[in-house]
């Protein structure tokens, strides 16, 4: 029951994201979608995933999106926002994806453990967060450390692009020229 309610909220707000006229409203609908997906993770007993989902997506990424909205001209964006000629294409892809889910997800793969078994095993090993922590620092230590280099590159890149204050003006004039 809880699943159905949360799933309905998630789907309804996801539809809102792409259908409402005002960009700010669609940003806030996205918050609702991400939050209800986070709640779905709690239902699956994946507390850690739920916490990260809410902290990172609802917390930081949404703030970034709203910051970006503050920097653009919202009235202009609202006016330009309709995707007239793409809608048929998008609906087509959506139908394909739904068919794929029906064909693939519903006949469950025999390689994945059933949720009940997985939950029991997780509880036995000391809980979700402990297992994740352990495997991050043993089995996946290389990936974990390597990801930090990726973040370093992102920082270097941001500083490099941010160092040149004149570039932004040039860029926007270029976009106007080419259009």
């Amino acid at each position: 029951m809880a699943f159905l309610i949360l799933a309905a909220i998630a789907v309804a707000s996801a539809v809102m994201v792409v259908s409402v006229k005002n960009v700010v409203h669609s940003a806030f609908s996205l918050v609702v979608t991400l939050f209800s997906v986070g709640c779905l993770f709690i239902l699956l007993r994946a507390e850690f995933l739920a916490a990260t989902q809410i902290l990172i997506y609802v917390g930081s990424i949404m703030i970034l999106i709203i910051f970006a909205l503050m920097l653009i001209d919202i009235k202009e964006a609202n006016r330009q926002r309709r995707f007239h000629h793409q809608s048929k294409f998008v609906i087509g892809i959506g139908i394909i994806l739904v068919i794929e889910i029906i064909l693939f997800i519903i006949p469950r793969s025999e390689f994945i453990e059933s949720p009940e078994k997985l939950i029991a095993r997780t509880a036995e090993a000391g809980g979700n967060i402990q297992i994740i922590g352990q495997s991050l620092f043993t089995d996946f230590i290389f990936a974990f450390e390597f990801a930090s280099i990726i973040i370093l590159v992102a920082i270097v890149a941001a500083i490099f692009l941010g160092k040149q204050p004149t570039s932004i003006i040039k860029k926007s004039s270029v976009i106007k020229d080419s259009s």
């Binding site: 590159v153 270097v156 890149a157 490099f160 692009l161 040149q164 004149t166 570039s167 040039k170 860029k171 270029v174 020229d177 080419s178």
Partner: peptide, 10 residues
């Protein structure tokens, strides 16, 4: 980032 090295070149 390397592609966009010349930040003043369109």
């Amino acid at each position: 980032i390397l592609c966009g090295l010349q930040t003043k070149d369109a």
